[in-house]
């Protein structure tokens, strides 16, 4: 993955009635990254995101997208180059799913056949069969389906950049988890630059290549999930991570495959999948009251051994 900065913020501030919602932040987001902005409610996450697509103008500072200063760019053209997905979806209730998804391609004046093909492709990509969903209205969708359509709509114009403002915030935990996995799966295919806003630190740790922690309009820390867990910059980041849970959070970022040992003798009775997290492995050990697990690959073959001691060693990545 190239490390070309796709998005650069240079000492950017935004005041509302004299009060800074965003206070002198500088940030580089590389092409292909999932940059997750996390922080408590009102800390300026959404404002930061809206500065990027000029829904709000900067009070001071510069923002460059792909090397171009956005102050010089036409707002509507800029937005058509950036996908935008928000909480509560903002789907147009009077339009079908297909019409909703085709908004940006229409604005870009794509030919009809290309638009239709794109709608088809995106519905399938998001796991919504075209025949079942294209002609439904938003009011006929479940929350999870509506948010999938929201994501499809954001991707429709094939933008380089995807801005997502708490897109899964209103979903139940199971639906949220599956949409997070979908996002990771899709991103591994399309390699967009994604800026994702959430107040949920677990969502941030799961999705991010790098996390931006914000507090009162400022950036407190900008680092990878593992570094954030290992070296929180201050007490605020520590409390956000939840002190007592940090060990488990870090374990959920690491795969069993990274820690397993060669298999010797008869494999243990209980198994764990190689791509499962250490956290899942630990949970299995606690549940079955055993000190070691057999590691199996996708085909179910025993490929290694995971003793509890392997969870403790080399813990600082």
């Amino acid at each position: 993955m190239s490390a070309r900065p796709m998005i650069e913020l240079d000492n950017v501030s935004r005041l509302f009635e004299g009060v800074a919602a965003v206070d002198g932040i500088s940030l580089r987001i590389d092409s292909g990254e999932i940059c997750v902005i996390v922080g408590t409610s009102g800390c300026g996450k959404s404002t930061t995101l809206r500065l990027l697509n000029k829904l709000i103008d900067c009070s001071s500072g510069d923002i460059r997208i792909d090397g171009q200063a956005i102050a010089q760019l036409d707002a509507q053209r800029l937005r058509r180059r950036m996908g935008y997905a928000i909480q509560n979806t903002g789907l147009f209730p009077h339009w079908t799913v297909a019409r909703n998804i085709s908004v940006v391609p229409r604005l870009l004046n794509w030919p009809t056949e290309r638009i239709e093909a794109r709608v088809h492709e995106l519905l399938e990509l998001l796991g919504l069969p075209h025949a079942d969903f294209a002609h439904k209205f938003p009011s006929q969708l479940s929350g999870g389906q509506a948010q999938r359509v929201g994501v499809a709509r954001a991707l429709a114009g094939d933008p380089d950049i995807l801005l997502m403002d708490e897109p899964f915030g209103a979903l139940d935990p199971i639906t949220r988890d599956s949409l997070q996995n979908e996002l990771l799966r899709i991103q591994s295919r399309i390699h967009k630059t994604i800026v994702f806003v959430t107040h949920d630190i677990d969502e941030a740790l799961k999705l991010a290549t790098r996390i931006v922690v914000m507090d009162q309009g400022r950036i407190v820390q900008h680092d990878t999930p593992v570094n954030l867990l290992n070296h929180p910059a201050n007490a605020f980041v520590e409390s956000l991570l939840g002190q007592g849970e940090r060990g488990l959070k870090r374990a959920s970022l690491q795969r069993v495959a990274e820690r397993m040992l060669p298999l010797q003798g008869t494999p243990p009775a209980f198994s764990v999948a190689a791509q499962d997290s250490l956290r899942q492995a630990l949970s299995l050990m606690l549940w079955h009251r055993v000190g070691e697990l057999c590691v199996r690959d996708n085909e179910g073959r025993a490929v290694g051994l995971l003793p509890i001691s392997a969870l403790l060693h080399g813990a600082t990545a």
Binding site: R77, G90, V103, V104, L107
Partner: peptide, 23 residues
């Protein structure tokens, strides 16, 4: 008109005239 719908319309890059007449 729900604020989220308006925000989405603007965020997609619709012109103000399009937001008014189409949404």
């Amino acid at each position: 008109v729900p604020p989220a719908v308006l925000e989405a319309a603007q965020g997609m890059g619709m012109a103000p005239r399009q937001v008014l007449f189409e949404v």
